[in-house]
Write a protein that binds this DNA or RNA. Sequence first.
DNA 1: GGCCATGTTGACGGTATCGTCATGGGCCGG
DNA 2: CCGGCCCATGACGATACCGTCAACATGGCC
Lengths: 116, 116
Amino acid sequence: MSRDASQIFAKRLKEAREAKGLSQAKLAELAGFQPSAISHFETGGRSPSFDNLKRLADALEVSTDWLLGREVTHSSGPLFESLFRHAENVSEEDLGMLARMAERLAAKEKDKRKKP
Amino acid sequence: MSRDASQIFAKRLKEAREAKGLSQAKLAELAGFQPSAISHFETGGRSPSFDNLKRLADALEVSTDWLLGREVTHSSGPLFESLFRHAENVSEEDLGMLARMAERLAAKEKDKRKKP
DNA sequence: GGCCATGTTGACGGTATCGTCATGGGCCGG
DNA sequence: CCGGCCCATGACGATACCGTCAACATGGCC
């Protein structure tokens, strides 16, 4: 049926885990799994269901929509997801600081692309 | 364990379905289910897994995060908008830096709220 | 070489969801 | 009253995931 759907999930799971610098064992411990379970997920052998999907998303701090390969409003990726999630919990002052920093970094990147 | 987790899902599913003016039968047809399956979901008898969760979210045009009861109140505001508009144009490296910084700031904020 | 962390794979019984179908109750319009 | 929706509920075998454990391949690193 939708065997490729779980393939997308497998890819994203691995991507999100590595973005946080976690081993499968660490993630397993964090989310309450057996290490092998994570491997099964990432190799497409199993598809998580309900509770486990939520536990994984919670532990990795990504959206379930992104894990499932659904289109998300903004740009996506584990880093973006992480930024998105945490930025909701900072003070107004710090949020402004983050925004200005992002602006500077974006300008720097634009410059670099112009003359490499 | 997570009997209440599926209760939240049941609530949200019904809410989303009624918001679109669909009967259980219509939604079933739309998403490729048996009508009884929808009823089982909404009464908490069953929890959907992977494929079915995605099919439901697609048919109802809602996020899986919301269906699962994950608090993803899409924050907004000019600073937030600015942050994400620029964050789309920074390098992967800088994005990671921003994400980690947001994480630190969020943690700091959480700490401050605990003992003012 | 040996050691340890990491990841893959395959098995096992237990359990939940799967699709399908049948039944029964409530409610409304004809 | 009765046919038509709507929904809830319960069964059935089939399938899939669950947790657990064991075995094995890697790839550093001493």
